[in-house]
């Protein structure tokens, strides 16, 4: 599944970059986040998050790695997670651009592949659920940065 969008955040690019590359900061907006552990700063972190897909609730342990970091322009991360009977793999990319009024545009895209129980039980829900979760997430990010 591929998703993409653009979010305008009323803050300078450097501030947006700092927030988005700080797992603890971003974590406050991540739905269902239960724990977060930095393995290698600016390189690897682990997260545990519970996600509900309709009647199915799964707790994922995810290993995430920054594969590209070009501050404060572009970042790309890859992740792989597992839950009992399910697995998820994905990558996500963000590109930040200055806007004339001093705010920042973020183009984001994500490519997510799910395997196992959630893929077979919740595939019909996945699109709308992901849209809702990403919408909530970016609204939260925007609110937190814009303070």
């Amino acid at each position: 599944m591929q998703f993409a969008g653009t979010v305008t955040i009323d803050a300078p690019r450097a501030e947006v970059w700092k927030f988005l590359t700080d797992p603890h900061a971003v974590g406050r907006c991540a739905p269902g986040l239960e724990s977060l552990e930095i393995v290698i700063p600016d390189k690897q972190f682990k997260a545990v998050a519970a996600v509900g897909f309709g009647s199915v609730s799964v707790k994922f342990s995810v290993d995430v790695e920054w594969v590209e970091l070009d501050p404060p322009n572009r970042g790309k991360l890859k992740g792989r997670g597992s839950a009992p009977g399910s697995a998820v793999e994905g990558s996500s990319e963000m590109i930040l651009r200055d806007l004339p009024n001093g705010s920042t545009d973020m183009d984001w895209s994500a490519d997510v592949v799910v395997f196992g129980t959630i893929a077979s039980l919740a595939s019909r829900l996945m699109g709308s659920l992901t849209r809702r979760l990403t919408g909530d997430f970016f609204n939260c990010v925007k609110a937190k940065i814009e303070g």
Partner: peptide, 14 residues
């Protein structure tokens, strides 16, 4: 099945 081998039709909803 999708290209990853995920089954579609593993329950009475699908």
């Amino acid at each position: 099945y999708d290209e990853n081998g995920n089954i579609h039709g593993s329950n009475f909803t699908d």
